[in-house]
Design a binder for these strands. Structure first.
Lengths: 227, 227
DNA sequence: AACTTACCAATTGTCGACAATTTATATGTG
DNA sequence: CACATATAAATTGTCGACAATTGGTAAGTT
């Protein structure tokens, strides 16, 4: 399976490696959300100089995982309910656009691959009940392929390289509850059909709705924490 | 008048200054589009070390004005017709969203200010025929205020700090032709009315259409160059 | 005890130098 | 002469050290 949203760009330089490593740690939560980042400490930990670490921090800032203040320093982004809403409003709009474009621009074999992915997804889901990892990766791959199907390089970059890391962070750290899985499957199916019929308007609407449902799901976690 | 999209964040550090200076030069074209950037050369020119310059280059990359390749270097973005389409598809989607949100979230006095701006715009336009600078700034300010009126911090950052510099670059270097001015005024007026009536759906649609018209206008320039 | 001020430690910003990589030039071979 | 190879120059990536700024601590005043 393609590894979605884990950046297919080759890791050539040392700061690339630090960037990828830190990104993973932040998304997965082993570097805690909202925590302050000490440049000397992390530079030592990754075995690089501060210059290299700062290069990585800049890249992390570009994908919204850390926030910087001049002469003060860096903090890991905090996962708040407010930010979730803001980010998902943007995501819904952009991925709706991607889906509409995909309905026009996806190649037949790409659509075919998408269908195969969904079948595979279905089988995996049946066999491994409760095991959420594969479902997670499968869902990401689904979105990933549609975004790429838009053939809009700017949009692809914006979603895959910049925004999706933060979305993954919410999903990984807040988690997804169970009953959503089968519903998501049906929604994915409907979206594929719309794309196959080149019905961009419908595809966009279905994708937006699908993402809204996903948002509501995560929102639940915040509501539970607040009570 | 508020200076839209020229970043209200205070300039504290040296790399801030270089970033702002270079940004202006790139947007205005005095650093040519598509040209290679030599770090040693520019560092000397701005009187800073390469580390400081590279910090600025990272920020410029975040707002899509330069592109980087590992071990190769930096190039100023090239203004192509394809990219224009891609960027404006994204802009239309996001600013449509902003406009819809603004219809719900703008304070009455903000709407009032928007109307005043439009009146001011009208007068300026009558007095200074052909003088496109004020019209340009006025139009940017108009969009700027609506985006801020969305009250979505992530969206505001995305549009004002990241995307709009590239859009300004197209506008400044490709230019806007004449007859569009008065039409744009009418379109602005219709958008304000929709916002005032809290008709988000209509406001979004009008904004998208307004931006499409703007795109078509710039597209004309490319078509002229191609013949 | 509360508040201000001065100092100190720690952190970030910036610099110049070195190492690694790429690009251009020159040399050699079919 | 075209092409591949090797060498050299230039550029980017990385490092360690110093300067500037910030946040906290302690001393001092009312």
């Amino acid at each position: 399976m393609t590894q979605p949203f884990l950046n297919d760009t080759p890791i050539t330089t040392a700061s690339d490696q630090v960037f990828v490593d830190m990104r993973r740690e932040i998304v997965e939560g082993s570097i805690e959300q909202g925590s302050k980042i000490s440049e000397p400490e992390l530079a030592k930990r990754y075995g690089v100089s501060r210059a290299t670490l700062r290069e990585a921090l800049n890249r992390l800032e570009s994908c919204y995982l850390v926030e910087r203040k001049a002469n003060v320093g860096c903090r890991v982004v905090a996962l708040t309910a407010e930010r979730l809403i803001e980010v998902y409003q943007v995501r819904s709009s952009l991925e709706g656009l991607a889906c509409r474009l995909a309905a026009d621009n996806m190649e037949p074999e790409e659509v075919k691959g998408l269908k195969q992915l969904l079948n595979q997804h279905l089988q995996t889901q049946r066999v491994k009940e409760g095991e959420s990892y594969y479902q997670e990766a499968g869902d990401l791959d689904f979105h990933y392929r549609i975004i790429k199907g838009s053939k809009n390089a700017h949009l692809i970059h914006l979603l895959c390289n910049e925004l999706y890391q933060l979305i993954r962070m919410y999903r990984v750290q807040m988690g997804m509850v169970g009953p959503r899985v089968s519903k998501a499957f049906d929604e994915h199916l409907a979206i594929i059909n719309a794309i196959e019929n080149h019905d961009g308007e419908l595809a966009e609407m279905l994708m937006k709705r699908h993402i809204s449902a996903s948002q509501a799901n995560i929102q639940t976690k915040f509501d539970l924490l607040a009570k």
